[in-house]
Design a protein around this nucleic acid. Sequence first.
RNA 1: GGGCGAUUAGCUCAGGGGGAGAGCGCUUCCCUGACACGGAAGAGGUCGUAGGUUCAAAUCCUACAUCGCCCACCA
Length: 865
Amino acid sequence: MLDTPVLDIPVLDTKYDPTSVEAPTYERWLEQGVFRADPGSGRPSFTIVIPPPNVTGSLHLGHALGHTLMDALSRRKRMQGYDALWLPGMDHAGIATQNVVERELAKEGKSRHDLGREEFVARVWQWKEEYGGKILGQMRRLGDGLDWDRERFTMDEGLSRAVRTIFKRLYDDQLIYRAERIINWCPRCMTALSDIEVEHRDSDGELVSISYGPLTVATTRAETMLGDTAVAVHPDDERYAHLVGAMLDLPLTDRQIPVVADAHVDPAFGTGAVKVTPAHDPNDFEIGQRHDLPSITVLDERGIVTAPGPFQGLDRFEARPAVVDALRAEGLIVDEKRPYVHSVGHCSRCGTVVEPRLSLQWFVAVSSLAKRAGDAVRAGETEFVPPSMADRYFDWVDDMHDWCISRQLWWGHRIPVWYGPNGETVVPGPDDDEPAGADWVQDEDVLDTWFSSALWPASTLGWPDETADLERYYPTSVLVTGYDIIFFWVARMMLFCTYIRPEVPFRQVAITGLVRDGRGRKMSKSAGNVVDPLDWMDAYGADAVRWTLARGANPGVDVPVSEEWIQGSRNFVNKLWNATRFALINGARVPDGALPTELSVADRWILSRLAAVRSEVDDLYENYEFAKVCDSLFHFAWDELFDWYVELAKVPMRDAGSPAAERTQLVLGHCFDTLLRLLHPLLPFVTEALWRAVTGGETVVTASWPREAGRADGAAEIEMRRFQELVAEVRRFRTQQGLQPGRKVPATLVGDLAAWAAHLGALADLTVEAADELPGNLAVLTVSGVRVGLDLSGAVDREAEKARLGKQLVAVEKERDQTGRKLANQGFLAKAPEQVVTSIRQRAEAAEAEIARLQDQLRALDAAT
RNA sequence: GGGCGAUUAGCUCAGGGGGAGAGCGCUUCCCUGACACGGAAGAGGUCGUAGGUUCAAAUCCUACAUCGCCCACCA
């Protein structure tokens, strides 16, 4: 037994206070070690690796969403008896982290170059120790049941070894190569970027047409003309056939450039002639390759013109108008600037306009890897949920460009390549000695952050070593992540992991949407609608935050949240708290063995509903239908258990100690025990407190997941439905009659639901007697064969009542007319299926009956006046 | 330019060939001994537009419109 105090139920406050429960509860879980996976347990395993958040990051709602779902999945599996591992960790986040530390240095008036590489990297590690990983504490606040003993970091020793291992293998397989290519260059971060690190945004540009003698070309980046080395036309373009091979004078320079014929040119676009700048445009680079053109670099790594002449030293954006002005001065601007909307690449880290730039970089040759990654999903080895998200994956994997993996940064895995004095290139394996000697230098660059994340599911479990964890927990069961990183991460894990091992890294990929604000807008700093989940946890509790997110989580669909939603969730948690309090105060207890066999219809009904909901929830969980899991449990809990069963239970419980009361206490105990278990994965904190109080158990975390809860009982469900209709009818009648709420009205009940007289009285504020015949002078309600007569000798506002009834009558008549028209319009009736005809007729008859009833009431009112 | 998705109650979203659903919001009444973070009763929608298939379409098909997202080497 642990010495953490057990909650003292009789003094439980009427309001649930998350702050007093959550932190101690999490601490207790850690003490108990309930989240520790155990490879020796002999149980089947269930594994999820966390998408590693950036060390620099703090918990945002997107994390909170994914974490809630992952936590719910692994908690449920644990309860089902699995050896559940949810593995935590963080990503070193190359550019992001380096930027943070560089900004810090800038405050001291220093740059990383002032420190030098070693000192700078040491400084980043120091930053990481001091300020990094704030998010880990926030994950605990959310209740994440992570196995902290297995926490990993992409830069720790094991993972770095994994990086060097795969690098070596890929290199030896000639799947990693170094080449001079056009890459995306961020002139602010001063590094290469991969294609997906570039965000394309439509921008207003200006297209200017420039005369190159006999040909006119158009461009939005006039400054690049300084680096033109050809003009291209389409090979079949008769207009220019005579010019192919000719040399043109390149304006503003003393160079001459050839006209080449290349199929890439669209003869229908513009003039059909294209300036070719191989050093600053990917297409032009390829044209240059095909025609053996020189590449002339005219911008440096900061985007400053290097071409000798009047423009040298100008920033690219200053050079652009300057070049146009100079051309205009020479009368070479054929068509003045035309507004032109085109897509411009921006650095996804800092927003700077990306400059295509020719440079020497390392690449992964992806085609064979991507083929395999695509095939694995096509073969069903990995399944996407929802399946439509696989299309997004295929889109990318099936048409992927080689991956530029070198970054001109210092923070990251340094490229494990050494260059020798005689032009040698050596890639030592992780266990090999590095080349020694003053003449040998290691590549200056580091690897793209995603290079190490691509190994995450395997490397965190020990790969390249065949560890017990790797053996047992790999491949992982499911990957939960947003659709926004299918390309960044999911696809690349598939690429690398299927390369290093025969199996796929995860059996399923459950795709979540993005969290949006209450109006469905993306959360962004500029829109000012960003919500910090920590604030909401402070105000409403972690469970309420989790419930809000899970409740909106339809597979692959965005999740809108707002303060009102979370208040609703808080209300639900509070309702659960109070309903459970009621059960406890009234002596609810979990039966030792089986439930009594003598049960009331209400007992049988709620147990039947419990069985149905349990089974439904299981199905929904298997399909990652979190929103529907929540919906199902919410309605069972509130609408059925709390609003009906608990209310009904008050009747037998009045008679404390009676067999009926005892029996009800056991059914209540069973229902709350089961409900709390079913809710636990999503509402871990409040259910822990309540479940321990209800059952006296140690912790619900390791309690078993309900398998056979209750028993289906159709007869009880039907009878209960009739009773509910009866109660609803009486209540409606009371409201319609303007009867004072709470005023007990004498009533007589006739029919086969006579046994419910006491319950009807309790739920509809009546004093009910069962009888064989109805006495006279009563207002009579008839509901499915049962009649209730109410003695309305009290005062009723008859005028208001007549108005209300009249309005209702009109509405029902309208409905009847529509149904009638439907009947009349259906010439098909003769050949229509029997049930359809019957169903429509029944509706018409029901409407007739309703009209008759309303007319009766109106008449009764008239008579009474 | 290509692809995907959406269009259902005031808002945010489920549903999916035969009686329009949820949460929140709204109206009226009620602080009844679990809970006002509550209870009861209500109002509110010709399910984007136009065609088509069908006995029957919010649901399937086609086109269109609007919005959103993703991809793209649109000079």
